[in-house]
């Protein structure tokens, strides 16, 4: 094997291949540039990633917020041993009306109840209310 002859072959081959790159047609150059932009664009999109510990940490933080919220939220339940506040008369009447099972039209006519109470009193029936 002749090293000098091989070196000459390699030199000419390298120069020829370099020229072939310089002589690439515009369409191929454009396609390569588009491929490069696509690769770099895809890389930019995926450059920032959630670190591996992010998901468990986010879950833990959410659970802590829920726990704090449950602890600090003002409670409506009476404390053990506390006296419930007295209801006003009007509030009691409203509650009675809401709790009544009779048809609504009877509730709307209080005169009927007054008449019925009078009738029952005359007949000696004890007051049911």
């Amino acid at each position: 094997m002749s090293n000098t002859r091989d070196e000459d072959l390699i030199r000419r081959a390298g120069a020829s291949l370099d020229r072939s790159v310089d002589a690439l047609d515009p369409a191929t150059r454009a396609a390569l540039a588009a491929a490069r932009r696509k690769a770099l664009g895809q890389g930019a999109k995926s450059a920032w990633r959630w670190p591996g510990f992010a998901a468990p940490a986010a879950g833990l933080a959410f659970a802590l917020v829920l726990a704090l919220g449950a602890l600090l939220w003002p409670s409506t339940a009476p404390l053990p041993g506390a006296t419930p506040p007295a209801l006003a008369e009007a509030e009691i009447e409203v509650l009675d009306l809401l709790a009544v099972q009779d048809p609504v039209e009877l509730v709307d006519e209080p005169d009927f109840y007054l008449w019925l109470e009078g009738e029952l009193a005359e007949e000696g029936v004890p007051h049911a209310g």
């Binding site: 000419r12 020829s16 020229r19 072939s20 002589a23 690439l24 047609d25 369409a27 191929t28």
Partner: peptide
């Protein structure tokens, strides 16, 4: 087609054969 301009170069024959 990228080789067409190259074929017009002085060393074109070598390039084609290579």
């Amino acid at each position: 087609p990228s080789w067409e301009p190259l074929r017009r170069l002085e060393d074109g024959q070598f390039s084609i054969r290579l």
